[in-house]
Design a protein around this nucleic acid. Structure first.
Lengths: 344, 344
DNA sequence: CTGAAAGCGCTAACAC
DNA sequence: GTGTTAGCGCTTTCAG
């Protein structure tokens, strides 16, 4: 099948009676090439249907123009927005993206790291798996000084930039909001507190309680895997509590929505009996009834920024200066938590 | 930064007093290598921290072990499920995925094609952009005999395999269902009828009407870009019709959900006044009230199958035999279309 | 079963 | 401004 012969810079050189070196330079806007020569080269290249062989180029330059991405899971709205943002920026800058999923497991994460290392990616964009307590498995990259940028689920490391929102503040705000709506017994559905995102939201929740003279009670905190099913299960446990909570702050919208549905089935009035707030501003949040109060969280932007930051590093446009970039967030108050009816 | 020296097969060869050729063979289970020698090679490789240089290998073999993926948009639930499936299969088979988005534009699609061609992907997995009426822009690949597989939004071509569901049948079924619920004036919200998926669903809709002695009326068909906004806009036009329709079949869940919300705001009872059905089984469909009748459509499976089919072709495990693979689909009837209350 | 050697296509000193 | 040349690291005939 592979019939048509590959055109190389040698073919162009020969056709134009030039050296391959000149052709190579002409093809990439090298300053020391006559305008006129370059035009000839470009024209001939197009005429012959020349396509650069990136392997040869990469081999020679030991650089791949490829960025590796490792995410826990691909199939969430948030993550696809992130990837979409990355792709946009990377593509515009002439980089390719190689994407892999850790499926929330540290082992798979390590396997992904190895594959991406073999692919000689120029840099790595990572959101950590559920159970990665440290980042020793990234040593392969760190030891070689290959830039590593964490986003969302990050890990503090002197050599890595992190891109996050202020999860502490966001957790604090959303809990304070529930309190302002009269909630006093607020349950918190969370993920693995190994992960910064959940640990910080939990801390925000806790401090908001304390600052409002509500004692923090660990039995109101429900760690789970944040799936739809887990949301339903946790809610079932809430319903079995001797005294019902009057508010729920869930660390993502999936569980918040699942919680609302379960509560409704049990005949609980929302927000009157239990006010509910989520996190992520997933499209689901506008569809569930009552509409879900949630934290808006710019996925696309986070992806764009992560890619742009990495590319800037790769192009050496900056040193190892910045270490943490914090994106803005904003609470979206909707009916699920609004007891004191103001205007919507 | 890039300090640590790269270990190559030469280093291993030297350390073991072997030739690079033998090391190369040992590393990839070549049959003509003594078990014992291979073990020594593998051990030494591990000891030295050897990592294959894929560029050199790819350059030499003119093969990349990389699959290119072009999708209209990354940020939908369906598409991320597809990608997730592809990644799983590709990764297991030792392939990488390079993913790019056409953002529904033929021009960007062409740019993606060129990039992926330069990256020397071994094959291509494509779901076509909104406005690609032909696939001449894929000639680069077709002429070279590089396998090209379409999924979901496909184009009939003798050299390409397509992976689809039976959109005609699905459209027929869902329309018939609406009719069985007593609908007689059914509007259809659709996308660009250039695309097989929408054209086929439309044809199914049409034939279902005719087969039930309901005349097909073009003014009941509303092409749009299937966004949330478009769903609301179309619904507004429905509401302005001199006589309201009594059923809506939307070609995706996003518009169906948006339609329901708009109708509810206008005080229309669903399904009593207007029954609504969507397409995709998006997570939204279970959350909207009333729950949305929709067509289940296996994204993850489609992705897995597309990748598996391509890889089988690449490994030459089969000729150019199969041309179209049709995946099963199944209608999920929920309250949004259920007038004759049976059991749910 | 192993080795020698050529070359995949490109880039970047270094020359002129 | 342009040319010469030496590899980047690997695979694969061909020989033995």
């Amino acid at each position: 099948m592979n019939t048509q012969k590959e055109i190389t810079i040698y073919d162009i050189a020969e056709a134009l009676d030039l050296s391959p070196a000149t052709v190579s330079r002409g093809l990439k806007d090298h300053p020391a090439i006559k305008k006129d020569t370059r035009k000839k080269i470009l024209d001939k290249a197009k005429e012959l249907g020349y396509q650069q062989n990136l392997f040869a180029s990469n081999l020679r330059r030991s650089r791949s123009n490829t960025i590796g991405v490792i995410v826990p899971r691909l199939n969430s709205y948030f993550m696809s927005a992130v990837i979409s943002g990355m792709e946009k920026v990377a593509n515009a800058a002439g980089y390719n993206l190689i994407i892999s999923q850790s499926t929330e497991s540290k082992e798979k994460e390590l396997a992904n790291i190895k594959t991406l290392y073999n692919s000689r990616v120029d840099g790595l964009l990572v959101s950590l798996a559920y159970d990665s307590e440290d980042i020793n498995h990234f040593d392969l990259f760190l030891n070689k000084g290959i830039p590593l940028i964490f986003f969302d689920r990050v890990f503090e490391h002197p050599r890595c930039t992190s891109i996050v929102i202020d999860n502490y503040k966001a957790g604090y705000e959303i809990t304070s909001h529930l309190i302002s709506q009269g909630c006093k017994r607020i349950a918190h559905i969370t993920g693995s507190v190994i992960r910064n995102v959940y640990a910080d939201r939990l801390k925000g929740y806790r401090h908001a309680l304390v600052d409002n003279s509500i004692p923090y009670d660990e039995s109101f905190v429900f760690p789970c895997n944040l799936s739809e099913q887990a949301g339903a299960d946790v809610t079932q446990r809430l319903l079995e509590m001797p005294e019902l909570p009057d508010g729920v702050f869930a660390a993502n919208d999936t569980t918040a929505v699942s919680c609302i549905r379960t509560l409704k089935q049990a005949g609980i009035k929302i927000p009157e009996q239990i006010a509910v707030a989520g996190f992520n501003n997933d499209p689901l949040s506008k569809v569930i009834e009552p509409n879900l109060t949630t934290m808006n969280y710019p996925g696309q932007e986070m992806g764009e920024l992560a890619a742009a930051t990495l590319i800037r590093k790769l192009d050496n446009k900056e040193g190892t200066s910045l270490n943490t970039i914090v994106l803005h967030h904003n609470m979206i108050v909707r009916e699920s938590s609004l007891r004191k009816k103001i205007n919507l």
